[in-house]
Amino acid sequence: MTSSSSIRQAREALGKRLREIRKDSGLTARELAARAGWHESKCSRIENGRTGPSDDDLRVWTLHCGTEGQTADLIATARNIDGAYVEWRRMERSGLRRAQESVLPLWERTRHFRAYSSWLIPGPLQTRAYIEALLRAIRDRRALPDDLEEAVQVRVDKQRILHEGPGRFAVILEESALRHQIGGPATMAGQLGHLLSLATLPNVSLGVIPLNADRTALWPVEDFWIFDEAQVNVELVAAFLTVTQPHEISMYAHTFAGLAELAVYGAPARNLITAAIDSFG
């Protein structure tokens, strides 16, 4: 499911709920629009998910339908939909540091982390040199304000959650993530050596899917993080996607389990990492 279709379905579900509230109140869409001072087509657009209601729209809706006790819940639902798909240019308009800091509360309250990546080493497992090369490239590509050093430090500091927190980390990498060069051969060799060290931590499970694995049943998918059973984050080309609907989280959890079955662990995984280190000279 694409991000746009997921958000559309959520808006349609909210619209259906609002239609039921209106009908239970005995009002027609035209009567509600007249009482609210709206164009008569506005109710239809909201109920069919074509227009997202504002906070004031929802307050007016529940006021005239006599369901003001539902206002807060409806506003929270609508805000979650609006926050599900956030463009990078909006998140990073003041620089990369803010984008790094914005996820800290989520990371601090999560106890079970699951990550899948096909092209890079995930953030908590990155070295400072790898982080700097990665964020510098993002800064330059997106022409962002230069707060590189501050952003790097925020990401480095966040790694205390891996070393000091109570969380468990299950990480699945495609072997290709070990081979994609970020920051040059020396940076990659250091990064992969660091990965070998982290794989020995008792709270870290590291699996690598070999390039020659049979992918008939499950091929590589978009990179994603699962935070407990509460949320999934996906980094897209243009935006940052947050998934909170239980059935979608379940789909990602099921996919992660399938990918985990394809991975190798322990000595076989270390052999793949060591081979990648050797390839960088």
Results as ranks from 00 to 15, higher is better:
M1A: 13
T2Y: 01
S3R: 08
S6I: 14
Q9E: 06
R11E: 01
L14G: 03
L14T: 02
L14E: 00
L14D: 00
L14F: 03
G15H: 00
R19M: 08
E20S: 12
R22Y: 07
K23P: 01
D24I: 03
S25R: 01
L27Q: 06
T28A: 03
A29G: 14
L32V: 11
A34V: 10
A34D: 15
R35H: 11
G37A: 03
R45F: 10
R45K: 09
I46W: 01
I46V: 13
S54C: 01
D57K: 02
L58R: 06
V60Q: 13
V60T: 15
W61Q: 04
T62N: 10
H64D: 12
C65K: 01
G66N: 06
E68H: 09
Q70W: 08
D73A: 15
I75T: 04
R79Q: 14
I81H: 01
D82W: 07
Y85L: 14
R90D: 15
G95R: 05
R97P: 00
R98D: 15
A99W: 03
V103R: 02
L104G: 09
L104S: 09
P105I: 02
R109Q: 12
R109L: 00
R109D: 10
T110C: 03
T110D: 02
H112M: 06
F113D: 00
A115D: 04
A115L: 13
A115E: 10
S117I: 09
S118R: 11
S118E: 11
W119F: 09
Q126N: 06
A133R: 04
L134Q: 14
L134T: 15
L134A: 14
L135M: 14
L144A: 09
D146T: 02
D146S: 05
D147E: 11
L148K: 07
A151T: 07
A151F: 04
V152S: 02
D157S: 08
K158V: 14
Q159C: 06
H163I: 12
G165S: 12
F169Q: 08
L173F: 10
G183A: 05
P185M: 03
G193I: 01
N203L: 02
V204Y: 09
S205R: 15
S205P: 02
L206F: 13
I209E: 00
L211F: 11
N212E: 15
R215W: 09
R215C: 05
A217G: 04
L218Y: 09
V221G: 13
V221H: 08
E222H: 13
E222K: 04
F224C: 06
W225F: 12
I226P: 02
I226Y: 05
F227R: 00
V232E: 07
N233L: 11
N233Y: 11
A239C: 11
A239M: 06
T242W: 05
Q245K: 13
P246S: 09
S250E: 13
M251T: 15
A253K: 07
A253E: 15
H254M: 15
F256L: 07
G258T: 14
L259W: 14
L262A: 03
G266F: 10
L272M: 07
A276G: 04
S279Q: 08
G281S: 10
